[in-house]
Design a protein around this nucleic acid. Structure first.
Length: 229
DNA sequence: GGGTCCACTCAACGAGCGAT
DNA sequence: ATCGCTCGTTGAGTGGACCC
């Protein structure tokens, strides 16, 4: 997934969940944060950041904050990117657990929910829910970074899809390199972590991939081991 | 009065949709 | 094709209800 023009900056402060003040070429600018989650580990004062330049005149901010450097590792924080990256990778047959599919579609309704991706492959059809992971601790990629009732709901819906004969996958995109393993963040959200384990036992496939964060691109890379218990 | 809980609103943006 | 509107996103902040 390619971005447009990128500039580097230094984070000054997060004004609210949407807006950060960033020094770009020594000048203080307002930037839209493309992730409304907590990101407390990442959005520290003086952090090096990357921003996409927008020429949309209707926007209140000229810049979008898309990546943050933590301990010399760049972390992509764009909450919309994982969806696109996984869509591109599946369409190109690069997710080896799924292989080459006949078709893949985005944002497809199922029951009361809407899953990120739907695919068909021979007689098989399945749903995929994509989750972006930006939290890393001691080499472990962790999700979620804040309690997520929506996340738990998605897992339960995926288990329902399995019961109805679909295949169902939850794919965690670790938006950085350098993590050895993915595991749910039990300390942050026990319900989510337990639901994930239960869903896996019911046949939901749990996958994790890391990603290469280039200056102006995010690319799905290697599968990571998933530890659920 | 102080503390807790809940419902509600708000923020900036992009996507989707209907109207023109 | 272009527009303007609505909706979804999720934590912070606010105000009201309630209990001690």
């Amino acid at each position: 997934m390619k971005y447009g023009e990128i500039v580097h900056g230094k984070l000054h402060r997060r004004v609210n969940r949407f807006i950060a003040e960033v020094f770009i070429h020594g000048k203080k600018e307002a930037a839209h944060i493309k992730n409304t989650g907590r990101l407390t580990e990442l959005l520290q004062p003086d952090a090096d950041v990357r921003l996409e330049v927008s020429d949309n005149p209707n926007r209140k901010t000229k810049y979008s904050l898309i990546a943050v450097c933590k301990n010399h590792i760049w972390v992509n924080i764009d909450s919309q990117a994982p969806n696109t990256v996984v869509f591109e990778a599946i369409a190109a047959g690069k997710v080896k657990e799924l292989g080459m599919v006949n078709m893949v579609k985005r944002e497809v309704p199922f029951g009361d929910s809407r899953f990120d991706l739907y695919f068909e492959k021979g007689n098989e059809s399945g749903f995929i829910e994509v989750k972006g992971v930006t939290l890393e601790k001691n080499g472990l990629a962790l999700f979620p970074d804040a309690p997520t009732s929506r996340g738990t709901k998605h897992i339960l819906e995926l288990a329902k899809a399995v019961q109805k004969g679909y295949s169902a996958t939850i794919l965690f995109v670790v938006q950085m390199k350098g993590c050895s393993t993915f595991t749910p963040n039990k300390e942050m959200d026990k319900t989510f972590s337990e639901s994930l384990l239960k869903a896996a036992q019911q046949g939901v496939q749990i996958l994790a991939y890391d990603a290469i964060v280039k200056v102006d691109e995010l690319v799905l890379d290697d599968p990571l081991p998933v530890v659920l218990s």
